[in-house]
């Protein structure tokens, strides 16, 4: 069953993520994804994540389609104006891509080309609205399209943001603009995720809880300091700090599995962001009882 049908019929879904390489050697990443066939329902492909110049999301998504894997095309508003964004959505459709995750995107100064022009002609909400319009056969100014694309549109939300209310307001607007599912920022505290889920239950939209594999205590501290809405609790930082270098993946998997077990009864899916540790995804799933 394809991802859209599965998620819309209320079934539990698992997604993971592929970060295209800086360069053209993509075979390794595709092979790794293939090993997860049947275990993972769809793969997000990041769009120049953290504003670092890389191979594109669109091409990588197509390569997944060719291997019988289902991609979720991440598209950000950082680099393209409304002409290019709409056009790329049409391109995605003709290339067999059916799931799109719409994001505003990081500012270019966070990446490796900080001199670049920040575009942000649209934002996550206006791009969702534009995509919905395309699905209805119209471009943003109301011109007719020949043939209509069909997408399952998704968006992101940060359940641990402080203050949370602006996130909820925006989430509601994203739903009105056409978002049919949400993937969340990394969760490290099941209790606060539960609190978030209680607030957004009323929206009746599938939510996939986000998991980022911790690689070291240093990474956890860095995220706590720099990344919005991430608070890795001290106990996990201590577990990572105490583990020897060889044991770190094992401990990391153990932490992820503990979180997933806590979360899976609360939401409709899990989104695993391995950030280079793709090879550990199978053990995460196994340890979590999937």
């Amino acid at each position: 069953m394809d991802f859209a049908k599965k998620i819309q019929s209320g079934q539990f879904v698992i997604t993971s993520e592929i970060g295209p390489p800086k360069g053209v050697e993509i075979e390794g990443a595709l092979k790794e994804a293939e090993t997860l066939k049947g275990k993972v329902d769809a793969f997000n492909v990041t769009d120049l994540q953290s504003s670092v110049m890389k191979l594109g999301s669109l091409a990588t998504c197509r390569l997944l389609v060719e291997r019988g894997l289902e991609p979720i095309f991440q598209i950000t508003c950082r680099d393209r104006n409304r002409l290019a964004l709409q056009s790329d959505l049409l391109s995605a459709y003709v290339l067999g891509i059916r799931n799109v995750l719409v994001l505003t995107g990081d500012h270019p100064v966070l990446g490796d080309h900080p001199q670049a022009k920040p575009v942000f002609d649209l934002d996550s909400i206006s791009l969702l609205k534009a995509a919905t319009g395309l699905m209805e056969g119209k471009d943003m100014v109301g011109n007719d399209l020949v043939g209509k694309p069909e997408f399952l549109l998704g968006a992101v939300v940060n359940p641990s943001a402080d203050p949370l209310e602006p996130q909820i307001i925006k989430m509601e607007k994203k739903i009105q603009a056409g978002a049919k599912f949400f993937q969340t920022q990394a969760i490290y505290d099941v209790k606060s995720f539960e609190n978030f889920m209680n607030i957004v239950k009323k929206f009746n939209v599938p939510i996939l809880g986000g998991i980022v594999l911790l690689k070291s205590a240093g990474m956890a501290k860095f995220m706590n300091e720099k990344v919005a809405g991430i608070n890795v609790p001290d106990k996990y930082i201590a577990m990572m700090a105490e583990a020897s270098k060889e044991d770190r993946p094992k401990v990391s998997v153990q932490i992820a599995a503990e979180l997933i077990k806590g979360m899976k009864g609360l939401c409709q899916g899990i989104h695993i962001m391995p950030l280079g540790w793709e090879k550990h995804v199978p053990s995460v799933l196994q340890e979590s009882g999937f």
Binding site: T104, D106, H107, V109, L110, P118, F120, D123, S124, I125, S126, V156, V157, N158, A161, D162, P166, Q167, I169, K170, K173, Q185, K226, V227, A228, G229
Partner: peptide
């Protein structure tokens, strides 16, 4: 980012991601 429809996900402790 000159956003018109609300806060992006990048703010931390009230400060901009930039």
């Amino acid at each position: 980012k000159g956003l018109l429809n609300g806060q992006c996900g990048g703010a931390k402790n009230g400060k901009c991601e930039v």
